[in-house]
Design a protein around this nucleic acid. Sequence first.
DNA 1: GTCTATAGCCAGATAGAC
DNA 2: GTCTATCTGGCTATAGAC
Lengths: 203, 203
Amino acid sequence: MPRTSFKEQMLRAREDAIVASVNRLLAEKGYDLMTVDEVAADVGIAKASLYKHFASKEALAAAAMVRLLDRALAFVATLDSHPTARAIDHLRAVARWSMQVQLAGEMPSLPAQNSSLRAALANDAGYLQRLMEVSDKLGAWIVTAQAAGHLNPQLPPEVVLYTLFARACDPVLGVLKLSGQHTDERIIELLLSTCFDGLSGRH
Amino acid sequence: MPRTSFKEQMLRAREDAIVASVNRLLAEKGYDLMTVDEVAADVGIAKASLYKHFASKEALAAAAMVRLLDRALAFVATLDSHPTARAIDHLRAVARWSMQVQLAGEMPSLPAQNSSLRAALANDAGYLQRLMEVSDKLGAWIVTAQAAGHLNPQLPPEVVLYTLFARACDPVLGVLKLSGQHTDERIIELLLSTCFDGLSGRH
DNA sequence: GTCTATAGCCAGATAGAC
DNA sequence: GTCTATCTGGCTATAGAC
């Protein structure tokens, strides 16, 4: 395997800068309102140059999702290095982490209904593989936590998994932040409570 | 007050048909992917005629939201006629109703990030008034249920309110329906459970 | 690979006859 | 108020020089 040349390093750095911009703009405006012109201006290159790196706007979104999943996998790996902790604590930690990412304005937001975008993601091997890795990790913790009685064992594991994914981009977070009535930490504690303990709370 | 003439009745009926189409298309494709051409074709009139009734695409969306809120208020009114039931049961009933609406493909979906659309809604007196009415009704039930110990009294009431609104358009519902592994009724019971009792469930 | 300039398309909104 | 036909602007994507 040839070592990466200087030119390749520069290319990588530029593409990282592009994806970072895309990630931020996706978090700020969402996919539909983000324009490729904006991305190019934000990175500081011409739009045509952008298209030399990524074939389409959809490819840009996919790259941002890959970046996010890589961050998630890195965080999951740090949890794995504490094997003494309980699975339920791992799951809470992941949920808290995803909410922190959202509050920091770094959670890319894609429309669930755009079918051509969905098709592009479904054809992206790198995206699919990382999504499966994250799902497998969380799925294992879910089953363990259910067996230990820390998660409701009557819920199908996939329902728990989908719910955790959905809470990572829950609009309630943004509304509460906009209201300005609570600190970021308090918002996260409130939403973790409603997510794991429900609106009724523990009795 | 003059009684409504035949012409006015026809006008009303046509506008109702328009809003019904908009509501369905908003549920099916979402605001950004719904085109005004589509709406006109669905209703069976020319696009220019549509613009005689509604000034803009945003006005169409606002009308659909008003229609939805009117349906919600009507449902809330039926609950009010059973004054013996507990507030928590009313809230669960409203949550179940909203999930049924979504599963029936009748829940209009608007992007949270489109600021011009948000501005249009914020300037629509009819929309705002109905939104406040619904919020007041639910808010009263929330406070009552908290006092009775049926809802976690440590949660700020507005957090409960926002959460109920958010669960009405929770994407988890659509994903579970798409997976085809559960009946509609089972999906609703599962999501009601995660919403009120949390992922941990009751202990 | 980077740029300027532009093609091509599509959707929201409108003109003007009837 | 309804229609056909059109305008207008913005967006993705590309051509072609350097």
